[in-house]
């Protein structure tokens, strides 16, 4: 077994501790949601609707963290040419797209009873949707290019191009007049809301970290398997 590892440029990951991390992350999410629903009274304007924000806002924040990771790992890949950075960027992009989609759907569910419309073509909503489409394109690019070297380089470029849009999404409510409200600060939030929001933001962060790690492990194991299969077929020479 150990001799087989030498056929691949990197080892297959072992994931005992991360499994425990995952269980804890989901347990913490349940606890955070239960606590925040219990301690936060209904909002004076929107009543219970305010509880949707405990997932919508953390999903939006963590989507930003995921896209930031995509940019970091993509740049690192172009610099150091370590294939593992490419796989990490891909995992972060996939989780970021997931949270992006969740942000959009939850925003719509909140917007219908609050604003009166499911969707408005304002700068914040539109740029968030465009961001989602850009990374859907990124994931499609990865799916449609088979050669790992080429896929890594191209998706690093596409990922960087996509990630530079995130500051625009985040700042759009400040730069431009939108239907979407600007970011809340602790001053504009009831203390119990601010506490609940933070609890849930960390919960989604832990879930996102777990997802990225697991996705990366799956991709890396697959690459190791490909390397080793190739080595087996070629009779032991280690060519990537």
């Amino acid at each position: 077994m150990t001799s087989a590892v030498a056929n691949s440029p990197f080892e297959a990951p072992k994931s005992g501790r991360w499994l425990l991390f995952g269980w804890l992350a989901f347990a913490y999410l349940i606890a955070a949601q239960a606590i925040s629903i219990a301690i936060s009274p209904p909002d004076r304007d929107m009543g219970d609707l305010q509880k949707i924000l405990y997932i919508h806002v953390p999903a939006a924040w963590n989507m930003g963290i995921c896209y930031f990771l995509v940019a970091i790992y993509s740049m690192r890949y172009l610099w150091k040419r370590d294939e593992r950075d490419d796989l990490k960027a891909a995992a972060a992009a996939e989780v970021g797209t997931l949270l992006n989609g969740l942000t959009l759907v939850l925003g719509m569910i909140w917007g219908r009873p609050t604003w009166g419309v499911w969707w408005a073509w304002d700068a914040r909503l539109t740029s968030t949707l465009v961001m989602f489409l850009i990374f859907a394109g990124y994931l499609a690019l990865r799916a449609f290019v088979d050669e790992p070297e080429r896929r890594a380089q191209w998706s690093a470029a596409a990922g960087l191009f996509g990630a530079i849009n995130y500051p625009i999404v985040y700042m759009s409510v400040r730069w431009w007049r939108t239907l979407h409200q600007v970011q809340s600060t602790p001053d504009t939030l009831d203390p119990s809301y601010a506490l609940s929001l933070r609890l849930n933001a960390f919960a989604i962060l832990f879930i996102a970290i777990f997802f990225i790690r697991r996705r990366y492990e799956a991709a890396l194991t697959e690459r190791v398997a490909e390397h080793e299969l190739q080595a087996a077929v070629l009779g032991g020479s280690s060519r990537g």
Partner: peptide, 22 residues
Amino acid sequence: SLMIKHSNEYRAPKEGEQPKEM
């Protein structure tokens, strides 16, 4: 068509107020 523009303020109702009653 009429849309609400919500502010970034979220407050619990004051003493004695019920959101439903509001």
